[in-house]
Amino acid sequence: MPAATDSTTPLRVAVIVGSVREGRQGRAVTDWFLRVATAYDGLEPDVVDLADVDLPTVMPDWGSGASPAARAALAGVYPRLAAADAFVVVTPEYNHSFPASLKNFLDWTGQQWQAKPVGFVSYGGLAGGVRAVEHLRQVVAELHAVSVRDAVSLHGPWSGLGEDGEPRDGAVCEGAAKGMLGQLLWWGRALRSARAEHPYQG
């Protein structure tokens, strides 16, 4: 629970880089998004790159607890997720959905997402990752999180990243990012205050 919940306290946002594939664009998309987010008043981003989280792919039986390998991988991640007031998930679209690495991460976490808002930045191909986001909305709802209505999607080749690391349709993409961040900030502050006053019963 945050120590302070007034509107002047920065909103701590965990930015999840969802792809671990070689040659991924996820980190470049995240870097662009952070350039937009850090110029936005009231946000304090913290990047959690799943390429740096060596999670097992075999889940334990319910009730048996996490394996030593999982505990080691998540030791530094759980506190960061718990401290976050909101989340932004950066995801590509693989086979009409989001990466297995991201699903595995979501399955290993849970309580840290409860009663917090989630925004999405997606990329890839003609659809720009929108189908991945639609699937993710169902998953984060199961984690008792609240997805914000607007998302950011970079559609290749029109608004994907150029060689300079910036979207080709910069004005449209930046406008979408600012719109999503505005909603995230509103929901993040409202839910942070609500959790402080009435602890969430998931």
Rank of each mutant, 00 (worst) to 15 (best):
G65E: 06
D164L: 14
G162A: 09
R35K: 15
V133A: 10
G26K: 01
L106S: 03
G129Y: 04
R131C: 10
V146R: 01
L74G: 01
L55H: 04
A82M: 08
G23P: 08
P10S: 11
Y123H: 04
R195P: 04
G26Q: 13
G128H: 01
D85R: 06
A14L: 05
E134T: 06
E166C: 04
D150M: 11
D107M: 09
V53Q: 05
G170S: 15
A73H: 09
G165R: 11
S19W: 07
V88S: 07
R149L: 14
S67W: 09
V53A: 10
V172M: 14
W32G: 06
G18P: 12
V130Y: 03
E197F: 07
F120Q: 03
W187D: 00
M180Y: 04
Q201V: 13
Y78R: 15
G165Q: 12
Q112H: 05
P56T: 01
P45H: 13
L34C: 14
L74D: 06
V53I: 13
L102R: 02
V20G: 00
H198E: 12
A70Q: 14
V47R: 04
D150W: 11
R189N: 15
P68G: 00
L191D: 00
D150G: 12
E93T: 03
A14G: 05
Y94E: 06
G65H: 05
F98N: 00
G156A: 15
V121W: 02
A196E: 12
G160W: 11
Q138M: 14
P117N: 04
S19I: 04
Q114L: 04
M59Y: 15
V148Y: 00
A86E: 06
A3P: 02
D46R: 11
R35I: 08
A177L: 05
A72C: 06
Y200A: 14
R137D: 07
A196R: 15
C173E: 02
A176N: 14
